[in-house]
Amino acid sequence: MFARQQWGLLLMLLALTVLGFLISLSSGSAGLGIGEVLRQLLQPDAGLQNQILFDLRIPRSVAAFVTGALLAMSGVIMQVLLRNPLADPYILGISGGAAVAALAAILLGLGAYWISQAAFIGALLSVLIVFGLARSSHRWSATRLILTGVVVSAGWGAIINILLTTSSNNSVYSMLFWLMGDLSQSRVGGFGIAVLASGFLLMMYYGRALNVLSRGDLQAAALGVPVRRLKLILYFTASLLTACAVTIAGSIGFVGLVTPHMLRMIGARDHRILLPASVLLGGSFLMIADSAARTIVAPQQLPVGVVTALIGVPVFLLILRHSNRHVQE
């Protein structure tokens, strides 16, 4: 019944992903067009174009895809965990912790590698703080978790502002880029890809249980879902995915909030469809946004987080309007 229509959706998203890769690979300041990119991919030679493609463009496109996929999947999980459609990957303060650590690393003049390591540690620290504070003796409620996350975020926000206002102009510029989310220095290693793949498989394993859990804790427990254990798994999986994304590209907004919503609105409600769909859509969305970030004001580059909001807001509002009309009919 639902299957045929939804497999169609996944195929369309797969096509979008391929398109996204081609757009992403063929945009940039070196004037390497789509025809040239395809030729280099099929018959690589040893020239400069080949070097640009394999050393610069492909790693950046892959980083964009993986980051977008991590954020979108984390958004799906957070929305189920907190049963709140406004939840996004950063709602529990992960980006704040990462930002404080990354900004401190920038302030100390450390290189890109150490900045991302610091961000990862800061993110995990924040995860543990929120978890420790939100866990009470008997109940682990969504409201308590959100409140703790929001308050801890506010605390990180204050520290971020202190760092911004007391730093030299030069480092403030790098800090702002980091805070808005930026892919120009991004590389993704085996670790990021492994986290994405294993997180995806784990969530697919619990796919049907996620459907049931989104109907409420009691209902899920009555249908045999080990609610407490599953929620712990969701919390730590979403946190790890977000921490990885933040480590790769800073805190890029909007992808994690909007991607799952768009997909739900066009009919991907079953998590076994929603999860792969959000990986593909989140990944291609970020690749395309990053291409725009590189070309809109070339040779200057915009932080990609600005572009995700610029593209995402109107598209989201359009879909929202359309789906409202659909419901009223």
């Binding site: 019944m1 639902f2 929305q79 189920v80 049963r83 709140n84 459609p85 049907r208 249980a209 459907n211 049931v212 989104s214 109907r215 409420g216 009691l218 209902q219 009555a222 249908l223 045999g224 879902v225 739900r264 409600r269 079953d270």
Partner: peptide
């Protein structure tokens, strides 16, 4: 249950099918 929570979208058939989960 006395009350059900329906914050997330799902169709009638999808919800009925959740009875097969266990």
């Amino acid at each position: 249950f006395q009350n059900s929570h329906d914050a997330m979208p799902a169709t009638v058939l999808e919800i009925a099918l959740m009875g097969r989960h266990p």
